[in-house]
Nucleic acid binder design. Structure first.
Length: 437
RNA sequence: GUGGGUAUAGCUCAGCUGGUUAGAGCGCCAGAUUGUGGCUCUGGAGGCCGUCGGUUCAAAUCCGACUACCCACCCCA
């Protein structure tokens, strides 16, 4: 924004790594606002924070995120071999690490459910663009141990509340059911055949699948619904929908979920084309978009992952989760002109006009701070002109001015910067006023 | 990985078809007020015009390469 470091000196300046960015104080306010709002809401729903390493064995992500996901396939991971010859990876998402930690600690065996949240940096080696960085921050929650749709409903409702608390209007969740492992397997077969048939029955000049979709048809056919190519969309619309093809249990799950969301007054739309890129999702998947932040407009994404814990070597444990793209959310807030609460105002500015007054000025500044009063102290003697200019620029309400003249008489100037009134007070009076401020 | 765009002062940007001293606004510093801010006025500092190479008598300006950033595709938060 308006603040940025200057480049000075003769030596070659070092730049931040591609796709990684510095956030300066004016913008950090937005981040802290979102984090604070999220934490408060999470605690309200019974979530507690977990912190897991940024670095994990590469194997963890290969097994969780999945072989057919682009994160793994397209080598979008920051992977390196450490001096001990082990392959490590900077986490591309948060869920895998949390699951690993729970299994490793044995916590899942002790209790029937766990509600956890995390905030931290994630890494994906992609080409940066608006709303997509190589290091980005996710705020996420994971709810383990419940297979009832009420858990899904609670997670989605929480997301809606969070965005509402931040001031967004008309928040709507896009929702889909991609079935359990069994019905998806069956569906994938049906889909593969349907795609092939659509190709063979095709006449010359009719729309055809793009190269990528032909690949997808083999590896993970559902992903063709994700394609944005016009022709593919047209073709995809003729394919059988997963929501019409799921098993009875899965179908009942999404019906119940819809009912609960309706009851809570949470707005959602069914999105049969919503297919998440992470392999571990089952049944419920959802995302929430916000405008004004470029092409990458999904701010929150999540879903159910009933097999992941077991796949990673833990006890069979159903789970639902979501994660928020913090940088994207901040972009969306700024686009919607939603402002974080104002910064606390600086009350006092203490100014020493010369070296003789530094000691007493320093002492007064510390005295005020000991009493919890925020004070800006100019740590160098300055002219009254420069000092007062700085004081009003900082937004101080009162300036305390000390120079040789004051020191000789044991007094201090107390200047109200809003009214321009100035009085001369003894040090005792100043201290009393500071303590009461 | 594939396209397109941009690169001039701390920030936002001018600088026409090459021409000698590279500008504005904002910000910063200072003076007007020899110890009193905000408003105003005046002055000042700050640029190897992203880097390297080429064309030319002459390049911020034209050409090429490189690098970085931005935007989009892909994918995702």
């Amino acid at each position: 924004m308006s603040e940025a470091p200057g480049q000075e000196g003769g030596a070659q300046a070092i730049q931040a790594i591609r796709g990684m960015k510095d956030v300066f104080p004016a913008e950090v306010r937005y981040y802290q606002w979102v984090e604070k709002t999220a934490r408060e809401l999470f605690e309200l729903y019974g979530y507690r924070e977990i912190r897991t390493p940024v670095l994990e064995p590469t194997e963890l992500f290969a097994r969780s995120v999945g072989d057919s996901s682009d994160i793994v396939v397209s080598k979008q991971m920051y992977t390196f071999v450490d001096p001990g010859e082990r392959s490590n990876t900077l986490r591309p998402e948060g869920t895998a690490g949390v699951v690993r930690a729970l299994i490793e600690s044995g916590l899942l065996k002790e209790t029937s459910q766990q509600k956890l949240y995390y905030i931290g940096p994630m890494f994906r080696y992609e080409k940066p663009q608006k709303g997509r960085l190589r290091q980005f921050t996710q705020i996420g929650i994971e709810f383990f141990g419940i297979d009832h749709p009420a858990a899904d409903a609670e997670v989605i409702t929480l997301c809606t509340h969070l965005l509402n608390h931040l001031g967004f209007k008309g928040v709507t969740t896009r929702l889909n059911n991609i079935g359990c492992r069994e019905c998806r397997k069956a569906y994938n077969e049906v889909l593969r055949k349907a795609i092939a048939e659509l190709v063979s029955s095709q006449e010359a000049g009719e729309p055809s699948w793009c190269d990528l979709c032909e690949q997808r048809a083999k590896v993970n056919p559902m992903r063709v619904f994700d394609c944005k190519v016009e022709e593919c969309r047209l073709l995809a619309s003729k394919l059988p929908k997963i929501s019409d093809s799921v098993c009875e249990t899965c179908a009942r799950h999404s019906e119940r979920l819809a009912g609960l969301l309706d009851a809570a007054g949470v707005s959602y739309t069914l999105a049969p084309d919503l297919v998440r890129g992470l392999d571990y999702y089952t049944r419920t998947v959802f995302e929430i978009e916000q405008g004004g932040i470029g092409a990458q407009n999904a701010v929150i994404g999540g879903g159910r992952y009933d097999n992941l814990v077991e796949d990673l070597g833990g006890p069979p444990t159903p789970a639902v989760g979501m994660s928020i793209g913090l940088e994207r959310l901040v972009l969306a807030l700024q686009a919607a002109e939603l402002e974080p609460p104002p910064e606390p105002e600086v009350e006092f500015y203490i100014l020493a006009l010369d070296e003789a007054a530094m000691g007493k000025a320093f002492e007064l500044a510390e005295y005020a701070r000991m009493h919890g009063v925020p004070v800006l102290f100019d740590c160098q003697p300055r002219s009254a002109r420069a000092g007062l200019r700085a004081a009003s620029k900082a937004g101080a309400r009162v300036a305390l001015i000390l120079g040789t003249y004051e020191m000789e008489r044991g007094v201090c100037q107390w200047k109200n910067l809003e009214t321009s009134e100035q009085v001369e007070l003894t040090f005792e009076e100043i201290e009393r006023n500071l303590a009461e401020a």
